[in-house]
């Protein structure tokens, strides 16, 4: 009997497709998406309904469905397009079967049977969709992590770590480990942590920064905290956070000057422009002679 129901559906596929397309078009009027052209929409609908029939006919999930889903995802269409379509298909099929004269199957059985036919397809679609979503999220997470603790070795013995964005516990740990490894790798006597881009410094963020600075001291380097904006200085004091143990500066430039002093280095302007040009000409002359 179960076979019969399916056969009736397949035999009347033309009518069903027609009904479905009408319903979808009706639904579409409510949520018109101007970005999608009418043609594309109709084509996709037709393909979609054919694939639904293909799956129903074989009572198994086809590879067509896989590739179709993937394409729809790549087009950036919402998942609701697919689930709504399938729900509509379910409704159309049920209405059709109930109204079918030759059939004397009790209504609950019809409902159940159609459910059994369509639900696996819905499940697969949702799985596929959420899988691709999770994939995107994890890729972004990796990208974010790569961005979250950059280290710039500016010159001998001086390294800068600019921090941008919110710092949570997870990121704080990552920052600390990256900072320490970087200090060893670049043999940095002084590290400047620039918090210009950190929007909020609360007790937790301050705590993490202090811990990182302490750890830097343990491995034998010095930490200077730079980029302290007025409002951050205010919150730090109002919250009663003690940052007196390590040097702080308002700007990266001031911090860098301090760092140079600490490493006994200086930036000297070597010679004036004119001299450079003269030397250049001299060297050209010499090379001509030789």
């Amino acid at each position: 009997m179960a076979k019969n129901l399916k056969e009736i559906l397949v035999d009347n596929s033309n009518g069903l497709v027609h009904m479905w397309l009408e319903e979808v078009a009706e639904k579409q009027k409510e949520v018109t998406n101007s970005a999608i052209s009418q043609d594309l929409f109709e084509n996709t609908n037709r393909e979609f309904v054919n694939i639904i029939f293909g799956s129903v006919e074989k009572e198994s999930l086809t590879s067509d469905l896989d590739s179709f889903t993937e394409r729809v995802i790549n087009l950036g269409w919402p998942l609701s397009y697919l689930t709504d379509g399938l729900q509509l298909f379910k409704r159309v099929a049920i209405e059709f079967l109930i109204e079918h004269e030759e059939l004397d199957v009790p209504v609950p059985k019809v409902l159940r049977h159609v459910d059994e036919l369509v639900n696996p397809i819905i499940n697969q679609l949702v799985n596929e969709y959420s899988g691709s979503w999770e994939n995107t999220v994890s890729l972004q997470r990796v990208a974010l992590q790569e961005l979250s603790a950059p280290l710039i070795p500016v010159m001998d013995n001086i390294t800068v770590m600019p921090l941008i964005g919110t710092i949570d516990t997870e990121r704080a740990k990552f920052i600390m480990e990256n900072l320490l490894d970087g200090v060893i790798k670049h043999h940095a006597e002084v590290v400047l942590i620039d918090i210009t881009g950190v929007p909020v410094v609360d007790t937790m963020v301050a705590h993490h920064i202090i811990q990182a600075a302490e750890a830097v001291r343990l491995i034998g380097s010095t930490c200077i905290l730079v980029g302290i904006r007025p409002e951050i200085a205010q919150t730090i004091v109002n919250l009663g956070i003690d940052l007196s143990k390590f040097p702080t500066k308002s700007s990266l430039r001031k911090g860098f000057t301090t760092a140079l002093e600490m490493t006994n280095q200086m930036i000297v302007q070597t010679n004036s422009e004119e001299q450079t040009i003269e030397e250049l000409i001299d060297s050209l002359d010499r090379s001509k002679q030789s």
Binding site: E214, L218, I219, G220
Partner: peptide, 14 residues
Amino acid sequence: VLTGIQPAVAVTLI
């Protein structure tokens, strides 16, 4: 003077 404390050791000490 203590020298060469490893990053992993520093983190655990903290």
